[in-house]
């Protein structure tokens, strides 16, 4: 996802004068080719995130379309107030590209996890937030950002994820039906999509065929479209590699209260709390109940009661 996103931006540089990339000393190897071809459109602003974001805001005000690349804590947490005041408050078309969504970097430790970034982004008016599930969604999110007049935040996992979508001709701002199904729907965003797909394969053997819906744009949430897709269902489950208390599960809960639909809602994800467990990504997903087997197990148990 990471490389697809960045390559889409680099391709745009070939035809646009205004695109500029700022890194906060992150992404070794990602920009090697870019730096050689477009040395005047790239700047490493070092380990100084407050300056990085305010500087970006100023650069944006002179007419550049600026991308800021860093791991998520350093585009959104360390410099939250700069993002709030200098980018969002001033309505600047800056794109923050955050790498290492959720617990991608397990077991690097809590400082490197991004399990509350969507919650934080929700508190930022004017911000459009994307959490692509595969390289195709990442590419379309990149294209959206290139033409956006608003601030954009894109949370990406890493590189090397396979494609889930079969075509590239969809509206990235809308929820996407990945697999049709009956009675049950699973809504997800980000790289956990692969676990959800595998969970469906497991459930298939028991004759359970949930609908799968990817939500690449997590803010603002397109509730109307989503609820149309959820008509006539009995149960909706959100699965995300994010704190349950502030991700799409919680956003959907708010929509749920307004719409009062017939279906039940369950939210799977990471419970809020500092993570001290030391496991690789698969182990961590298993631990938090969001691996393919744990998702399938959860659904099978409840669906067959």
């Amino acid at each position: 996802m990471r490389n697809t996103f960045i390559n889409t931006i680099i391709d745009a540089c070939k035809i646009r004068e205004d695109v500029f990339i700022i890194s906060g000393d992150a992404g070794l190897g990602v920009f090697d080719e870019f730096k050689n071809t477009f040395s005047d459109k790239f700047l490493n602003l070092g380990v100084a995130e407050q300056n990085m974001i305010s500087f970006t805001a100023g650069l944006s005000m002179t007419g550049f379309k600026v991308y800021v690349y860093n791991i998520i804590p350093f585009v959104l947490y360390r410099c939250y107030e700069q993002v709030r005041n200098d980018i969002c408050y001033q309505e600047l078309p800056v794109t923050l590209v955050g790498i290492g969504s959720g617990i991608t970097y397990s077991p690097q430790g809590m400082t490197h996890y991004s399990v509350e970034d969507i919650g934080i982004a929700q508190s930022l008016p004017n911000m459009k937030v994307f959490s692509p599930t595969d390289p195709i969604e990442a590419k379309l999110a990149a294209k959206f950002s290139l033409s956006s007049g608003s601030p954009v935040y894109v949370r990406l996992a890493k590189r090397g994820e396979p494609n889930i979508h079969k075509n590239e001709t969809f509206d990235i701002t809308e929820p996407q039906l990945i697999e049709d199904g009956e009675d049950i729907a699973i809504i997800f965003h980000g790289s956990i999509g692969l676990e959800v797909l595998k969970a469906r394969e497991i459930l298939k053997k028991d004759g359970i065929l949930p609908k799968l819906i990817s939500m690449p744009m997590v803010m603002p949430i397109n509730g109307e479209k989503l609820f149309l897709m959820l008509r006539n269902l009995k149960w909706v489950i959100t699965v995300e590699e994010h704190f349950i208390n502030s991700g799409i599960g919680s956003m959907l809960s708010r929509e749920y209260v307004k719409a009062n639909p017939d279906w039940k809602l369950s939210t799977l994800g990471i419970p809020d709390g500092f993570i001290h467990a030391i496991k690789d990504l698969d182990g961590m997903r298993e631990y938090f109940g969001i691996s393919a087997t744990r998702i399938a197990e959860y659904i099978r148990k409840k669906a067959t009661v």
Partner: peptide, 23 residues
């Protein structure tokens, strides 16, 4: 610029100065 929290305007100014040089 919009400002009020200290330590923001200075850095936005640096970004603008850089942008003007680039252009």
């Amino acid at each position: 610029v919009s400002a009020g929290s200290l330590g923001h305007g200075f850095n936005m100014g640096l970004g603008m100065a850089f942008g003007f040089k680039k252009k």
